[in-house]
Design a protein around this nucleic acid. Structure first.
Length: 411
DNA sequence: TCTGGGGTCCTAGGACCC
DNA sequence: TCTGGGGTCCTAGGACCC
């Protein structure tokens, strides 16, 4: 019996879903842009676009310079989540041990009697076939004895490929592998390694691990082993407890309009609170992130002696931090809650009236759709960018004097 | 018309306690 | 008066991943 790890990685996932749904997009370079105010970044692009050197994460502007005839499609997150669920259901027909690594990636742990190359290939092809039959989407499969090598392998055989690296082949496989192909080595680390004259994983082996540890700390030791093709062999079936809940937003344009900034912060706090309540978590740390027009960023965090998951506590405390830091035009606002615990395990900050109100609000939004009812401070943003839409609001205070609502005393 | 949004993990410095 | 050191928690920032 031999335990093997299969890494399945969907090919250009968001773009492929769009192409599968819309025949007019097939065979064309497609950019899927985020669902954001400034549609400025490519969240995913089709292989036809990749040929021109376009990559996800690139600005649309840069992408269009490389590939002027690309079709830009606005992302449909619900559609991708739904497709992802269907894919993972298929994976679960092959083994109970499936780790959902991201929306378009997963690890499978499978134990086989016969781990011959032919048998592994047969397994990989049957997974690929099952996914294609259900979704019309292609994926790449990397098969090895640990997650790191399986993941590198699936990346190398993209798109629509299959690559098997048996345990005894790992040293040879890693020898001439560029270091930046190793998950965990990002642009910064790759640059540091280049400065040391290291381009390939094989070169790392010749350097004592102690030197790596001295130079880069724990991370250095870790990447030394990763470059030898060592890696995690355990597939985690249960998704771990979240460590944080956060939302951020890049504004339509940089602004110092405090009413707008507060309105956006209120919306973000509302989104964070709603998700925490939905999943039954609370937290006791608030982190506010601001990015200014010059792209410098700033984060400030505060720990509280009580736990919470209500919009108002998040908003009031985050806004009291924000007001002190609004001295130049702001590009992005973000708010996160950390110190996450299961709600029932904590003595949560209690305010019966507020709890009832939130419960009612969450139920209404669940039944009648998102944002049927929301804190009235959010109206300012909504009215500014979508003045026609009819809205209902509940009152945190008076709408017309938003900036005077900032807490005299944070809760 | 440069540079999204959701996360996790690590580090280094400071406060504070014993 | 000055001075040690270990442990823990908090904070800000950065690297990395998808």
């Amino acid at each position: 019996m031999k335990k093997i790890i299969v890494h399945i990685d969907m090919d250009a996932f968001f773009a492929s879903v769009e192409q599968a749904l819309n025949p007019l997009l097939k065979g064309k370079p497609v950019f899927v842009s985020g669902n954001t105010a400034r549609d400025s970044v490519i969240a995913a692009c089709s292989y036809e676009a990749k040929k021109y050197g376009v990559k996800s994460g690139m600005s649309v502007y840069e992408g269009l310079n490389l590939c002027p005839n690309a079709v830009i499609v606005k992302g449909n997150p619900e559609r991708y989540i739904d497709t992802s669920k269907r894919i993972f259901n298929i994976l679960q027909t092959f083994t109970e041990k499936v780790e959902l690594y991201s929306i378009d990636e997963g690890f499978l742990e499978i134990t086989l009697d016969d781990d011959s190359y032919e048998n592994l290939e047969k397994l990989g092809l049957s997974i690929k076939k099952a996914i294609y039959e259900e979704t019309s989407l292609t994926c790449s499969a990397g098969i090895s004895c640990n997650k790191t090598v399986a993941k590198i392998a699936s990346d190398l055989c993209k798109p629509d490929g299959i690559m098997i690296v048996k345990e005894e082949q790992i040293p040879e496989f890693m020898e001439n592998l560029p270091v930046e192909k190793v998950p965990g080595i990002g642009p910064r680390m790759a640059e540091s390694l280049t400065l040391m004259g290291i381009e390939f994983c094989g070169q790392v082996r010749k350097i004592p691990v102690s030197l790596f540890k001295k130079k880069f700390g724990i991370k250095g030791e870790e990447i030394w082993y990763l470059c030898q093709g060592f890696g995690d062999t355990s597939v985690t079936v249960q998704s771990p407890q979240p460590k944080s809940f956060g939302h951020s937003y890049t504004l339509m344009e940089d602004t110092d309009d405090i009413d707008l900034l507060l309105s956006v912060l209120c919306r973000l706090s509302h989104q964070v609170g709603m998700r925490m309540r939905q999943e039954d978590y609370c937290g006791n740390v608030i982190v506010l992130t601001l990015r200014y027009s010059d792209f410098t960023s700033f984060t400030k965090r505060k720990t509280y002696p009580f736990w919470f998951n209500d919009d108002q506590t998040i908003f009031r405390n985050a806004s009291s931090i924000m007001i002190e830091e609004c001295f130049k035009k702001i590009r992005l606002i973000g708010v996160s809650v950390l110190g996450i615990q299961r709600k029932y395990q904590m003595s949560i900050f209690r305010n019966e009236k507020r709890e009832k109100m939130l419960k009612a609000m969450d139920s209404i939004n669940k039944i009648y759709g998102r944002d049927t009812i929301f804190p009235c401070l959010m109206l300012y943003e909504k009215m500014k960018y979508n003045p026609v839409k009819k809205t209902h609001a509940f009152m945190f205070g008076e709408l017309k004097k938003i900036s005077t609502l900032i807490p005299e005393q944070p809760v």
